[in-house]
Lab assay of single mutants.
Amino acid sequence: MRKLSDELLIESYFKATEMNLNRDFIELIENEIKRRSLGHIISV
């Protein structure tokens, strides 16, 4: 996760939620978004 750019991480989050991927996977992405202080972009 740390090698993904912020932009790609956010894009991955939206794609994963759109495709209804595994909730655990989405939570991993959400946690990384929060760690990077980007939660305001997706309202996490």
Rank of each mutant, 00 (worst) to 15 (best):
I42V: 08
S37R: 13
F14Q: 06
L4V: 06
D24C: 09
E18F: 07
M19N: 11
R2L: 15
N20W: 05
K15R: 13
N22H: 10
K3G: 15
I33F: 04
M19F: 08
Y13T: 00
I26H: 02
S5Q: 03
D6T: 09
I29N: 00
N22G: 11
S43R: 09
R35D: 04
D6V: 05
I42N: 04
S37E: 12
N31W: 09
R2G: 15
S5L: 04
I41D: 04
K3C: 07
K34V: 09
I26G: 01
D6W: 05
A16K: 03
N20Y: 06
E18D: 07
S5M: 04
L8A: 15
V44L: 13
L28E: 08
L21D: 07
E32R: 00
S43M: 13
E7G: 07
G39R: 03
K34H: 12
S37T: 07
E7Q: 13
M19R: 06
F25A: 07
L9G: 01
R35N: 05
M1S: 02
M19V: 06
M1H: 05
I42M: 07
R36P: 00
E27T: 12
L28C: 07
G39M: 13
T17F: 12
V44Y: 10
R36I: 01
M1W: 15
N22F: 06
L38E: 02
R35S: 05
E30N: 05
M1V: 15
R23E: 07
I33V: 05
I10E: 02
E30T: 12
R35E: 04
F14P: 00
I29H: 03
I42H: 04
M1P: 05
M1G: 03
L9P: 00
R23Q: 11
F25C: 13
L28S: 06
V44Q: 14
H40R: 02
L9N: 00
T17M: 14
I29S: 00
L38W: 03
A16L: 05
L21A: 14
I26F: 04
L21Q: 10
S5F: 04
L28M: 13
L4R: 02
S37A: 12
N22Q: 09
N31I: 11
I26N: 01
L4A: 04
H40K: 04
K3R: 09
L21M: 14
V44P: 13
E7R: 11
L21V: 11
K3T: 14
L4H: 03
E7V: 09
S12E: 12
E7Y: 09
L21R: 08
S5A: 05
D6G: 02
Y13H: 02
L9F: 03
D6Q: 04
V44R: 08
L38R: 02
K34Q: 10
L38H: 02
F25W: 14
E11Y: 11
I29L: 15
N22M: 07
L4S: 03
R36Q: 01
F25D: 06
H40D: 07
D24T: 09
S43D: 12
D24M: 06
S12T: 15
E32A: 01
R36V: 01
Y13S: 01
I29W: 04
K3P: 03
K34I: 12
F25P: 01
I33W: 01
S37H: 14
E7M: 10
D24I: 08
K15D: 04
I41M: 14
I42F: 05
K15Y: 14
S5P: 07
L21S: 11
R2Y: 15
E27C: 07
S37G: 15
F25H: 08
Y13N: 00
M19I: 06
E11R: 11
L8P: 01
I41W: 11
L8F: 07
K3Q: 15
F14D: 02
Y13L: 03
E18P: 02
I10L: 11
S37Q: 14
N20L: 08
L38G: 02
K15M: 11
D24P: 07
I29T: 01
K34D: 06
K3Y: 13
H40Y: 12
N31A: 14
M19E: 11
L8W: 07
R23K: 11
F14R: 10
S12L: 15
I33H: 00
R23I: 09
V44C: 06
G39C: 15
V44D: 12
T17N: 10
M1I: 15
E32S: 01
I10S: 02
I41T: 07
F14W: 13
M19W: 07
R2A: 15
M19C: 09
N22P: 14
F14I: 10
L4P: 01
E32C: 01
R35P: 00
L28T: 07
Y13K: 01
I33P: 00
E18M: 11
I41A: 10
I10F: 05
R23F: 08
E32Q: 01
I26P: 00
I26A: 02
E18G: 09
N20G: 14
S37I: 05
R35G: 03
R36G: 01
D6N: 12
K15A: 10
T17I: 15
A16M: 05
S12G: 05
R23H: 11
N31S: 11
I42S: 04
N20M: 10
H40C: 08
I41K: 08
I10H: 02
E11D: 10
E11V: 10
E7F: 10
T17L: 14
M19G: 09
E7S: 10
E11S: 09
I33R: 00
H40E: 07
E27I: 12
R23W: 08
E18S: 11
H40Q: 07
I29F: 10
R35Q: 05
E32N: 01
L9Y: 01
I29V: 06
L8V: 14
I41Y: 12
I41V: 11
A16I: 04
R2S: 15
K3E: 15
S37L: 13
S12D: 03
E7W: 11
R36K: 01
E27P: 02
L21W: 11
E30D: 03
N31P: 00
E27S: 11
M19A: 12
G39Q: 13
G39H: 13
L9A: 00
K15F: 11
R36N: 00
L38M: 06
D6S: 05
S43P: 10
E11H: 10
N20S: 09
L4T: 03
E32P: 00
N31E: 13
V44I: 13
T17D: 04
E30R: 14
E11F: 11
